[in-house]
Amino acid sequence: MSREMKLDRFEIRLSGLGGQGILTLGKIMGQALALDHGYNVAQTQSYGPEARGGASRSDLVISSSTISYPKTISLDLLVALSQEACNKFFTNLKPSGALVVDTSMVGQTPTNIFLGLPFTDMARKVGLVQTTNIVTLGALTHFLPFMRAVSVRKSLKSILPSKIIDINLKAFNAGFNAAKKQYPDAPEKWIFS
């Protein structure tokens, strides 16, 4: 625990469409941060009654101390995998917060200060479009200084079924490396309150 950064209600929203794997992404991130890093994490979710296509989001509150209110109040990080989600939730972002978008899904961003990678296209290149969420996870692991790739990989292996692990690890690495290459100094830019 001593090596860990102190966090006070760091709030993340992962948003997109139903079927993009938003909830799985939240679960993997949450488990890595809660069990391996030892943070207190509350992961909540919100989705429409449809199985695919409707709005879907997963919120994470990460804190070194106990979390009372489990939902987000104002976001430190917004991840938008669809244009609709980007438009809808951008106003919930803190002034110092960061926006991460999937540039293959989001054509217009409300600001030009954002971290963007074509996650969906990258997933196609990996060979399975369903790994979009894991590509995103790879990029986020680079962006967030308090998340270690080792523990995220561990969490990934424990949650996903073993027969699809290999392609997902490939997707994870693709996201991680692309983010590192394009935004090498992103992890240092955070303003922690």
Binding site: G26, K27, G30, Q31, A34, L35, N40, V41, A42, Q43, T44, Q45, I67, P70, K71
Partner: peptide
């Protein structure tokens, strides 16, 4: 629903 669908350690 919030309690049931919140993940925590």
């Amino acid at each position: 629903e919030v309690t049931a669908h919140t993940r925590e350690k």
